[in-house]
Structure formats: structure tokens, C-alpha cells
């Protein structure tokens, strides 16, 4: 009975939040969760994004059992963590591992937005650092796909310091002469955008993604004015010189493969 209901739910057509088109669920899935009418990119969860990018069956996960605990005894945090794990099916807000893209080996990190808005606490910081260190050890490129609301408030300053920690490790990576590609997806703001997500050699973004340091609501409150249309969207960032390239989801694997190939020696 439950299963049937679930199937029915999946089969319901989905309204595009951008152009209001009613899209049959299978058609949306087939189109990589991009609206066929207006190209609105729906969110992908981390597993879906990994499947989209890497060669079939090549993904080997790192540190899958690393998990957070309520280190500050912050009211309600433990419950929030448990709920997030249930909701996302993930232990934490990032999945990291080793994979190949068109045969090019790389270390990969993909954030999971359904896990507490992919906020960065100790575990996200640690998993990013370990992934970077793995890439250095294996002398292979690094790709991190970000989407995050910023540092995780429930871990206080320990969360904020993860910005410094990930930046420090990426400094070493940079010194090692290895390639780091950052893909910004909807939404990437706060402590993640101001640390590892921005410290790449090449910064890509999905169309229409909200990217910035401060959230639009805070900015609006502070300046007491309406924000310009498409403010902080990836097209706006491209225009202002803050990212290298907009990549549509259907072109993602090809673009990555090409970039990886161009950085391969001999």
C-alpha cells in the first residue's frame, strides 16, 4: 500500500517554479531534472549528481561513517541531525570519494542540500580536508560541487573555523600544482562560498544558481531597497567576472572531461 502511494506520488506531474509548466515526472527525470521548456535546473541530491558526472560504477566513497555530534550541547541539534540523516539518507552534508570521469581519475566532493541546507560543520570541513589530502596523495585533480547555506550555527565557532581549515588545506593543494575545479550549484552562500568553493583554479556554475556571500534577505534588510533582478544568480556572477563558466547540466560531464583532459600531462 505504502509503496503504491509512493509510486503514485513520483508519477505526479511537477510544476516548474520558474515557468509554471506542468512537467511529467519521467520527462523531468529523463531531462536530468531540467525543465524542458525554460531550462530551470531543479536541485539534484548528491547521489544523483554523482551518477550524472562519473563513469558508471567508478565511485568509491571515502569516510562514509564520519558523523557529527552535539559538541556544544546546542538545544535541539541532536534531533536535527537525526532528522537530516533520515530525510537525506546521508550521514552528513557532503559525500566524498574517488571516481573516474571519461576515464580521468579524480577526487570528488558533492554537497547534499537536503542535509540541514548543506551547512558546514566539523564533519563537512574534515571530509573536504581529507578529500583534498587524498587528491594530493594520489596526485589527481579535485572537484567539489557546492551548495550550502554557510557555516552551521549549531556548531558555533568550531563551524566557522572550518572555513580557515579548508582554506589552509587548499593552500597546500594549490602549492602542489594540482587542478581544483569548483562547481557552484543552487544555493551557495556564506562560509562555504567564502572558503573552499571560491579557492579553485576553475569555477563553474549551474544556470540560475543563487551564489553569494550574504543572503539576499539580509542584504535587502540592510540596504532597505529592492534588489536588482537576477541579483546573485550565476549569470550575474559571470557578468561581474566572479566565475569562469556557466555549464548546463546536460553539458556537465563533457565539460569536466574536456577540462580534465586539458590538464593531463603528455
Amino acid at each position: 500500500m505504502e509503496k503504491e502511494e509512493e509510486e503514485k506520488k513520483v508519477a505526479l506531474p511537477i510544476n516548474c517554479p520558474s515557468c509554471s509548466a506542468r512537467i511529467p515526472a519521467e520527462a523531468l527525470q529523463r531531462n536530468l531534472k531540467v525543465c524542458p521548456k525554460c531550462q530551470h535546473h531543479f536541485s539534484l541530491n548528491a547521489r544523483e549528481r554523482i551518477d550524472l558526472m562519473v563513469d558508471n560504477g567508478s565511485f568509491q566513497e571515502f569516510d562514509a561513517d564520519l558523523s557529527s555530534f552535539n559538541l556544544l550541547d546546542f538545544p535541539g541539534y541532536q534531533e536535527k541531525l537525526e532528522k537530516a540523516q533520515e530525510l537525506s539518507g546521508s550521514r552528513e552534508a557532503i559525500i566524498t570519494g574517488l571516481a573516474t570521469v571519461d576515464g580521468h581519475k579524480l577526487v570528488l566532493g558533492v554537497m547534499e542540500s537536503s542535509f540541514m541546507m548543506a551547512s558546514m560543520g566539523s564533519v563537512v570541513g574534515e571530509k573536504v580536508c581529507r578529500a583534498v589530502e587524498q587528491a594530493m596523495e594520489l596526485s589527481c585533480p579535485l572537484l567539489i560541487c557546492s551548495c550550502s547555506g554557510g557555516a552551521r550555527m549549531q556548531e558555533g565557532m568550531v563551524a566557522l573555523m572550518q572555513m580557515a581549515k579548508t582554506s589552509a588545506v587548499l593552500g597546500k593543494f594549490n602549492q602542489a600544482g594540482l587542478l581544483y575545479i569548483s562547481l557552484l550549484t543552487h544555493p551557495t552562500t556564506g562560509g562555504v562560498s567564502a572558503s573552499f568553493a571560491s579557492l579553485a583554479d576553475i569555477i563553474l556554475a549551474e544556470p540560475g544558481a543563487l551564489i553569494g556571500f550574504a543572503g539576499p534577505r539580509v542584504i535587502k534588510q540592510t540596504i532597505g531597497q529592492q534588489l536588482p533582478p537576477r541579483f546573485q544568480r550565476s549569470e550575474f556572477l559571470l557578468e561581474h567576472g566572479m566565475i569562469d563558466l556557466l555549464v548546463e547540466r546536460s553539458q556537465l560531464k563533457e565539460t569536466l572531461s574536456s577540462l580534465l583532459g586539458l590538464h593531463q600531462e603528455g
Binding site: 582554506s167 553569494g212 556571500f213 550574504a214 542584504i219 540592510t222 540596504i223 531597497q225 546573485q232 561581474h240
Partner: peptide, 20 residues
């Protein structure tokens, strides 16, 4: 500062560079 100009001119990027 959370403002339009600050975002246009790369607040996040500028902070990340200092951290590194």
C-alpha cells in the same frame, strides 16, 4: 558588509583569498 556592490565585487572570493 551585506550590500549590492559588495556582492558584485566578489565579497566571498575576497574573503577566501585572505583565509588562504
Amino acid at each position: 558588509y551585506p550590500g549590492i556592490g559588495a556582492e558584485e565585487r566578489g565579497q566571498a572570493w575576497a574573503i577566501s583569498q585572505v583565509l588562504m
